[in-house]
Design a protein around this nucleic acid. Structure first.
Length: 430
DNA sequence: TCTGGGGTCCTAGGACCC
DNA sequence: TCTGGGGTCCTAGGACCC
């Protein structure tokens, strides 16, 4: 049996954990640059504020109802996530951290130790709430897809008390009939449209599909597995996350600029900063990257069809996680995609082709340099973790401007303090 | 005026090899 | 000159997820 634990309105719940006065008010959290709505309290949902909506479109509605808008604060959310995940990891033999606010637990055979699994899930839910103030819902089922579905039903139906266990064909059928096909895990906009045209509108209808139909219309083997999972046959194994962290196969740092830019030096400031942050993430998971991509985008809302994003990629002879080297390579790639006189709104650095470990191979050729780089990077990471992200930056990452803030940096007008992670922003009690 | 930032997996097609 | 069946690796693009 799998359990899917999903935090309700996670970012809003994190903010509420430190600001009880938000508890009774409609609250939303905004994306980078305060651009879009990325998390909503139940009250905000009830007002009809859609997920992902640009702020400027719903601003009048929000002002009318006194909705509190907060800039996103990922240091806080990451730390709260870690607390939730650490507790969950202590409650099941295997945990897969699926996203910042969701985890799959493997509970196979756990009845022996904990009794009925729905009661156990209720205890977990209560304890997460007590420890972190984060509300959750839990779905339990024989497959991951059904656990997701059970979670969704639990979230929508308050009478279930936040937990739903699907342990019989009757309960499974009951749940399948209550979920619209577009709300099934793995059914997005394209597939939903196609299924509706075929007259399939519920999860139950999808579960009755033949394998051939699933293969033909839902992306081949992916669709076939999806339908099997709805029928109760597991096709997706749990991928345990070791020591509470998730090792990525790709690391990207991309950002829309605070304002459109065209000068090479300005954009280089952004790209160098992204490369630097990507390298930090890389070292945190003890990887080195052998493929680096830099891309530049023009405004996709300006013309139809949208202008192309130009990218350049290089495969390094030796995988690296050295900030200075990755910045050097990123700069060269930027030179290949940047065109004078073009206005850009967004850039990104993507790392790929990971190898375990770091820079060992470098040491074969230049042992001294390797050790120096390693020590420097460790120092950099520890300073940044002590004094807050971005305290120590490699010179290029500061950009050409003499001002501390590069011209690419965006707005965060509604940001709350990093209550749990920055020394100068610690929560004051009383 | 203002429109997020991450990720995953799969498939098809081309280049190249034996 | 024509004939064949495997393979691998890489890239681009599409669909999905939170």
């Amino acid at each position: 049996m799998y359990a899917l634990v999903d935090c309700n309105n996670f970012y809003v719940s994190c903010e509420r954990a430190f600001q009880p006065r938000l508890e009774t008010r409609p609250v939303v959290v905004l994306s980078n640059n305060d651009g879009c709505i990325v998390s909503r309290s139940a009250e905000a949902k009830a007002l009809g504020i859609p997920m992902g909506e640009p702020l400027f479109k719903v601003k009048p509605l929000m002002e009318q109802h006194g909705v509190v808008a907060l800039s996103s604060n990922y240091a806080l959310y990451g730390d709260m996530s870690h607390r939730v995940m650490s507790y969950l990891a202590s409650q099941a033999p295997e945990v897969e951290i699926y996203s910042i606010d969701e985890a799959f637990l493997s509970l196979h055979g756990m009845e022996r130790y904990h009794g009925p699994l729905d009661a156990y899930a209720r205890r977990i839910r209560t304890e997460v709430k007590r420890r972190t103030h984060i509300p959750t819902c839990i779905g339990l089922a024989p497959t991951k897809t059904l656990a997701k579905l059970a979670n969704r039903v639990a979230k929508k139906d308050p009478s279930l008390g936040g937990v739903l266990l699907l342990d019989s064909p009757e309960r499974r059928q009951w749940a399948l009939e209550r979920v619209a096909v577009e709300d099934v895990w793995g059914i997005g906009r394209q597939y939903a449209t196609k299924l509706h045209e075929m007259g399939i509108t519920t999860a139950a209808g999808l579960a009755r599909c033949s394998e051939a139909v699933a293969r033909k219309h839902l992306g081949g083997v992916v669709g076939a597995r999806l339908v099997r999972e709805l029928q109760g046959y597991p096709c997706h194994k749990l991928n345990p996350s070791e020591d509470g962290t998730l090792a990525r196969q790709t690391i990207a740092c991309t950002r829309t600029f605070g304002k459109p830019l065209s000068q090479f030096e300005d954009i280089l400031g952004a790209v160098a900063s992204f490369a630097s942050r990507a390298a930090e993430k890389l070292r945190r998971q003890e990887s080195a990257a052998s493929v680096l991509t830099v891309f530049l985008s023009q405004n996709r809302f300006d013309t139809t069809p949208p202008p192309h994003t130009r990218s350049a990629q290089v495969t390094l002879p030796v995988a690296s996680n050295d900030t200075t080297e990755l910045i050097r390579v990123a700069r060269a790639l930027l030179g290949r995609v940047w065109q004078p006189g073009t206005v850009y709104v967004k850039a990104g650095v993507v790392l790929d082709g990971f190898e375990k470990g770091g820079n060992e191979q470098l040491s074969l050729f230049a042992p001294d340099r390797h050790e120096r780089v390693e020590r420097l990077m460790q120092k950099l990471d520890s300073l940044n973790s002590r004094f807050g992200k971005g305290s120590v930056l490699v010179a290029t990452a500061l950009g050409s401007s003499t001002k501390h803030a590069g011209p690419w940096k965006g707005q965060q007008q509604h940001r709350t303090p990093a209550y749990t992670t920055k020394w100068n922003e610690l929560w004051e009690i009383g």
